[in-house]
Design a protein around this nucleic acid. Structure first.
Length: 435
DNA sequence: TATCCACAGGAAATCAGGGTGT
DNA sequence: ACACCCTGATTTCCTGTGGATA
């Protein structure tokens, strides 16, 4: 047998492809399970579709459509419904073809970039550079561009995850500017459609903006298990070969996703992952076992991707917690410890600078919000007020991710000197009693 | 019961790195 | 070359605080 330099049997890629091609087929069209896919029918969203269609219809006659907001938890079909309606609207026989400018505020996350994005999607010739110009110049250019178009033109600005924008500093201003676009336009009209999964984000909204776009809401309720089942059945018809899904698969996916606030995206991901697992095992059918495995895998995938995508400093914070819990499993970790260990290990990696306690505090909050760690504020009386920090996910998973990060890989076995100081031992004895 | 620890966490300033037009 | 712009990450400065201890 072929051996590589590690003396392991070498992966036979030709054989793999051959097996793969001759193996059983599970998928017919796996793209249909992607989140970007717009299905032909959207089950259980009739009221929302009707509502949005009614609000936007006047655009076909050249009137200004009202601005409005869509609320609903993740995976309740907000984005899909908007895209669906916009597609239908575009298919109508009408002289006026409205623009639909879709902006995910999580990706296009700054005022400048939002304006530039709008400009660049409309303008064919001149593009606005990704940075460099003053905002008001771009705003004026945008006004000019919108007004220069011949005849009435209507522009829908869809701001997805608008809550993220509002929580940022310049967020309210840019929204205000956008709502005021109409006042400065003669030949064209704009309408803003905000999408949010947080109801309470309106609290941070400038009152002037609420009045112009917060009056009308469309609520997307969470799906229940039977509704999710309908969605999955529709989608599975397009996605999978006939008869590859065992009958319990769809109800199980629906039930699992129903527990997670009725998240349809989750349900579809589960289904896809289950299919992929079956395919990988060269199975002819997808069973409940695949779904169960898919659920665990999905969770892990998500966390791993999240951690891999974080800045190095944040990863080093995770590494600090990891090293402490690894070499002193019983140790009660507080914020200050993370600061100390981080200071120590960051010196081991070239080009990584020292952080402030304040900054580390922010990272701890971020990790806690992401569900990677738990951080409970607790007062230790004379020993101060701080956070007690623990991992919320398995150490194996953490170890797995961290060791895949080049710069961190080398320090996975580093035992922090910090842990060996007397101060630490003493402190831990006191803390254990207090908790 | 006053004290005091070790931070929490808000607000504003700063820095570096990507640009611009003149 | 120069003055100026935007952004993201971070620092600086700051006030607030729960509860064991003296």
């Amino acid at each position: 047998m072929l051996k590589n330099h590690n003396n392991n049997p070498q992966f036979n890629i030709d054989k793999f492809y051959k097996n793969y091609l001759s193996g059983p087929r599970i998928f017919k069209n796996r793209d249909a399970l992607e989140s970007s896919y717009i299905p032909r029918e959207l089950p259980h969203r009739d009221t929302q579709i009707k509502n949005i269609a009614e609000k936007t219809a006047c655009a076909l006659l050249g009137d200004t459509p009202p601005s409005f907001l869509c609320y609903g938890m993740t995976g309740t079909g907000k984005t899909a419904t908007i895209r669906y309606v916009s597609q239908k609207l575009a298919q109508q026989n009408s002289k006026i073809k409205p623009w639909w400018i879709y902006i995910n505020c999580n990706v296009v996350s700054t005022p400048y970039r939002i304006l530039a994005h709008i400009y660049n999607t409309i303008s064919r010739k001149e593009k606005i550079p990704p940075t460099g110009l003053p905002k008001d110049i771009i705003f004026k250019k945008l006004l000019g561009l919108l007004d220069s178009r011949v005849g009435n033109s209507i522009c829908f600005l869809v701001l997805d995850e608008i809550d993220i924008l509002v929580d940022k500093k310049g967020g309210n201003e840019i929204l205000y500017d956008l709502t005021r676009l109409n006042e400065n336009l003669d030949n064209s009209k704009t309408s803003i459609i905000g999408i949010s999964n947080k109801l309470k984000f309106r609290e941070n909204l400038d009152p002037r903006i609420i009045s112009s776009l917060g009056e009308e809401h469309i609520v997307f309720p969470s799906y229940d298990a039977s509704e999710l089942r309908d969605i999955l059945i529709e989608r599975a018809k397009i996605t999978f070969q006939d008869g590859v899904l065992k009958e319990e698969v769809i109800p199980l996916c629906a039930a699992l996703a129903a527990k997670e606030n009725g998240d349809a995206r989750k349900a579809l991901q589960l289904l896809r992952k289950a299919g992929e697992l079956a395919e990988r095992d060269q199975n002819k059918i997808v069973t409940a076992k695949h779904v169960e495995k898919a659920q665990g895998d999905l969770e892990n995938d998500h966390i791993m991707e999240y951690i891999k995508g974080m800045p190095l400093q944040a990863q080093l914070i995770i590494a600090s917690i990891y090293l402490i819990s690894r070499f002193s499993p019983d140790y009660v970790i507080i914020s200050g410890d993370i600061y100390d260990v981080h200071s120590e290990i960051r010196g081991l990696i070239p080009g990584v600078r020292q952080l402030t306690k304040r900054r580390i505090s922010d990272y701890i909050n971020e990790l806690s919000l992401a569900g990677i760690i738990s951080a409970e504020v607790k007062s230790m009386g004379h020993y101060g007020r701080t956070k007690i920090i623990k991992f919320d996910i398995g150490m194996e998973l953490i170890e797995n991710v961290l060791s895949k990060i080049d710069k961190i890989h080398g320090i996975m076995n580093y035992k922090p000197v910090f842990l060996q100081t007397d101060k630490v031992k003493l402190k831990n004895n006191i803390f254990k009693k207090l908790i």
